[in-house]
Design a protein around this nucleic acid. Structure first.
Lengths: 307, 307
DNA sequence: CATCGAGCATAAGGTGAGCTTACGCATGAG
DNA sequence: CTCATGCGTAAGCTCACCTTATGCTCGATG
């Protein structure tokens, strides 16, 4: 019988790339991980890893074994979800990850709703980069997370994480009221709307984020390379900068409600989809289901089931 | 993360009924099993067992957890099968269980074929009652087993064991050549064929076997209760007893090839199906696949895939 | 009804699996 | 060249898990 804990290590190695990273993520020493993987390899009777430079990579046999590990761990997650459902009442800690812009907008309303429905639940919120969400979920640091993706930036498919759609918002172009320049958008297509600001400085999210990638690719799709002057994640700051003529930027609908008066907002045919993510198999966990329901109520989603 | 070893114990408890039986099957003490199940229950946070008299029974939550355990263990079995497939060559021990009548007929031919194709394989044959096959498979005492079922005796569905059909034989009625009694079967229906021997003594397999149950139910279906005089599992003995007028008995086609001359054999519209059984998920294991293929060759099955 | 064995749970103690620390070696960056 | 990074092995320690011992309850049996 293969040891599932060792399969878990193999899966993490496949995801994270180095034994040292696995060890750090699971709060072990690298030595322990190395030893356990050696045992797994001996049990398997087939080479699962091979050195590549100073790292290790999985052999084909190792990679197919990871797919089995995914299936097994997903089923175990489903089992704990059902057990939690059998326990009467919803309570205990719930570790919630959120993208930074979800902080002011979605999270408070969701937590308020959640507290009203399930007072015994102890939500623990933590800001986290979208790219690190799936690691955090798998490592058990997070139970559920608010994530989003944009047009032009497809979310990488990850079989270890399930997602439920929460909200779809239009993106807006935020610009200053520059008098006399004649830069006014006409038309409905993205290229027509963005075109007038091809030469303008731009305000985007920080490099390495999906928001940054979205901004660059949207401008490229409109036929130009944006000159990025400011890199700011906070949309209120983006709006404030745009208002004083420091450049053009993208903000989601959610951020437009309290925009400064002297900022010009143009709705774009470009969308941001917010989702709730959790470990594959965890969708039936009552606390997670409750979080999803509360979030939907908070943002006003009209029904709709999982993808 | 639920411990799969403990889930395995819970599954065995569900199947075997008592903690003591589980302990014996897995060569533990009952105390160890009890302790591990207690830990599992604490981890689950839900009562999984409850005392019932001096035994324990699973709660509904416990039983649903067993279905998850089945799924997880099947997937792990599939994983080891694939790993064995990745290892080049087929070899090592293969523990084979067989019903007693398979001993002389099917097993030698199968092993000969197997040895020709895979000399490195070390088959280990062991006679085993049909009723104990699935326990033996799950406990790892057996890797593969020859089993059969009869009309009137449906095999109990068991999700932890997969089966592949191997052979379907007609059953024959074996009787003596009693002169002058006028007991000659006319017709094609079971009742017509068995009817003349309603008052005869009968020779069946030993009580508690599927062969015994089949004989009784076939006679009941024909409208009478058989008076059982002899209980013998060996079909050659059945034929010899029938030949000397000691009663009527059922034998499978396979046993009729070297029947005594003074026995009367009547083909019945009643069938015995032989199958190869193995742990769920084990069908892709190369040694098991090789055994199935060899057995099919040995008995002359014409193709056909799993059920 | 009294007795006894079967079955399970708990307490106490021993042992090995699995962890950490320590160290050596190879690789690739600066 | 030099050094940091990453992996593997050796040695030792700790705790999880198993066994033994014991008690309790239930149900079969005379």
């Amino acid at each position: 019988m293969l040891d599932v804990r060792r399969l878990h290590l193999l899966r993490e190695l496949d995801r994270r790339g180095t034994i040292a990273a696995v060890a750090q993520a699971l709060t072990f020493t690298a030595s322990a991980v190395s030893q356990q993987l050696s045992v797994l390899e001996r049990e398997a009777g087939v080479p699962l890893l091979e050195r590549s430079g100073r790292r290790v990579v999985l052999t084909p046999a190792g990679r197919t074994l990871v797919t089995h590990a995914d299936a097994v761990l997903e089923r175990l997650e489903l089992a704990v979800s059902e057990l939690a459902g059998a326990r009467e009442g919803i309570g205990g800690p719930l570790r919630i990850g959120t993208f930074p812009s979800g902080g002011p907008a979605i999270v408070p309303a969701t937590l308020a709703e959640l507290a009203r429905r399930h007072p015994a639940l102890e939500p623990m919120v933590q800001e986290i980069d979208s790219a690190r969400v799936s690691d955090g979920l798998r490592a058990g640091e997070l139970d559920v997370a608010l994530v989003h993706d944009y047009d032009f930036v497809p979310a990488s498919p990850d079989t270890t994480v399930d997602q439920v759609p929460l909200l779809e918002e239009s993106m807006y172009l935020a610009t200053g009221t520059v008098s006399g320049t004649g830069r006014v958008a006409r038309g409905e297509k993205l290229a027509e709307l963005l075109g007038p600001w091809a030469m303008s400085p731009w305000i985007t999210a920080r490099d390495g984020t999906t928001g940054h990638a979205m901004a660059v690719r949207a401008c490229q799709a409109a036929g130009f390379q944006p000159r990025i002057r400011h890199q700011v994640n906070d949309f209120r700051t983006v709006l404030a900068l745009a208002a004083i003529g420091q450049g053009a930027g993208f903000v989601p609908e959610m951020a437009t409600t309290h925009a400064p008066e002297d900022v010009v907002l143009t709705r774009l045919p470009l969308f941001r989809r917010s989702k709730v993510a959790f470990r594959a198999g965890g969708g039936t966990h009552p606390a997670i289901a409750a979080f999803v329901a509360a979030a939907r109520t908070a943002v006003g989603t009209k029904g709709g089931a999982s993808p």
